[in-house]
């Protein structure tokens, strides 16, 4: 169970908007965390609390396949991304990196910016403590859920080949 405040974004938030191309030749993942979504909400990276949520509309993470986008969100300390829907490559990259993402059209349209949320990472049950409402995210495939709990694809592969 994790809790934090909701940061609400709109539809079609592209991976370009999450980490603009001008930062792609940086090497330290922390540098991406510092600029995450800054073109849309300059205060976001600075004011984000550890475990806070991104709540977004349709097609979150669309555009290029850059993995720097979910990497920046995870490194910045976001607890989970809840969206109406995700672009295919962002969704895949998020699970590979161990960033929890949940598709929940209801929460995406009803949660207000700043609401305090509580999320059960295993069941996908979302509570909005301010509105006293609850939502159920679409089920995550068990294969993907296992990958997130293993800490992402690299850790999973490492365990397979080295045993630790």
């Amino acid at each position: 169970m994790i809790s934090g405040r909701a940061w609400v974004f709109g539809d079609h938030i592209s991976s370009d908007a999450i980490v603009p191309a001008r930062y792609l030749n940086q090497r330290n993942p922390r540098s991406w965390a510092g600029v995450v979504l800054a073109d849309l909400r300059p205060e976001f990276a600075e004011q984000l609390g550890f475990g806070d949520f991104i709540v977004a509309g349709r097609n979150f993470g669309c555009g290029s396949s850059r993995e720097q986008a979910p990497m920046a969100i995870k490194t910045a300390g976001v607890g989970a991304v809840i969206a109406h829907s995700f672009s295919r490559m962002f969704y895949r990259n998020a699970f590979n990196l161990g960033l929890p993402v949940f598709a929940c059209p209801e929460a995406a349209s009803l949660v207000h910016d700043g609401d305090r949320l509580r999320l059960d990472l295993f069941s996908g049950a979302i509570q909005d403590l301010d509105q006293e409402s609850s939502f159920q995210a679409e089920a995550v495939d068990p294969y993907l859920a296992e990958m997130v709990s293993a800490g992402g694809l690299i850790k999973k592969v490492r365990k397979q080949i080295t045993g630790h």
């Binding site: 396949s65 993995e67 895949r92 990259n93 590979n96 990196l97 690299i154 592969v157 397979q160």
Partner: peptide, 13 residues
């Protein structure tokens, strides 16, 4: 198309 982590894992396995 996939991300870099997918490539890394595929290189290994």
């Amino acid at each position: 198309g996939v991300g870099a982590t997918d490539l890394a894992a595929a290189l290994v396995t």
